[in-house]
Amino acid sequence: MPKTWRNHALLAYALAILAFLYLPLMILALYSFNESRINAVWSGFTVNWYASLFNNRRVLEALTNSLAVACISTVISTVLGTTGAMALNRYKYRFKAAINGLLYLPILIPEIVMGLSLLVLFSQTAIPLGKVSLILAHITFCVSFVVITVNSRLEGMEAELEAAAADLYATPLQTFRYVTLPLAMPGIIAGALIAFTLSIDDFVISFFVAGPNSTTLPLYIYAMVKRGISPEINALSTLMMLTTVLLIILAHLLQGSPKKASPADE
C-alpha cells in the first residue's frame, strides 16, 4: 500500500512540474486564437491572427532577419569553432592553459558588457551597424560555445584511431575527412545547434549592435510592448513551437536508425 501511495505522489509531482513547464506555453498558444487584439479577456475564437501574420510584412521581415543571421553565424562559428577546438586539442604550445581560459571568457562575461564593447568597437572602426555587425557579434559569442562542445567530444576520442589510419597510408587530409570528422560529428552538430539556438534567442547583444534593416524577432517583440503585443506574435510563437517540436521529432528519427542509415551512407 505505501508503495502505491508513493507512486501516486511521484506522479502528481511529475505532472505538477510538467504543468509548470508547459502551462505558460499552452496559454500563449491558446491566446493566439483569441479574437481581441489584446490579451486581456477572452472574447471569441478566431484563426484570423494566423492569416494576418502572413500579411504582416514587418513581422515576416523580422523573422527572415532572425533566421538569416542565425543560419550564417551558425555556419561560420561552427567552422571556426571546430578548427579552433582541433588546434587546441591536438597541438602543444606555450600559454595553452591561458588561451583555453580566454575562450571561456565570452561565456562568462555578462552579455550587456559584451554588447556594449562590441558596439564601441564597431563605432570606433566605423563598421556600420546592420546585418553585418549583427552577424559578426553573433559569431563572436557563438564560437566559444562551439569550441567547448567540440573540444569535449575530442577529449573523449582516442588518438589510436587516427594513428591507425596513418598506418594504413591515409594522408592527413584523408584521416581528417574519414576518421576525425565523422567521430567528432556529434560534438560539431551539438555545437551548431547550441550556436543556432543562442543566435535566434539573443536579445541583449543584438539590442546594442543592430542597425538599419536588421531588426530581429526578439527586438521586434520587445519594441511592441509599448503598443501592446498583438496576437499575431502569439500565432507566430505557436508556429515556431510546433516547428521546434517537429524538428526534435525529426532529429530523434534520424538518430533512432543510425545502424540502418550509416552503412547506406557509405
Binding site: R58, L119, F122, S123, A126, P128, L129, G130, F207, A210, G211, P212, N213, S214, T215, L219, Y220, Y222, A223, M224, V225, K226
Partner: peptide, 20 residues
C-alpha cells in the same frame, strides 16, 4: 522600418553612428 522601445535606446544608436 526598424524599431526601438524607448528614447534612450534611440539616443544611444544615433550617438553610436547616427548617419545610418
Amino acid at each position: 522600418y526598424d524599431v526601438f522601445a524607448n528614447n534612450e535606446e534611440l539616443l544611444a544608436k544615433i550617438q553610436a553612428g547616427g548617419a545610418l
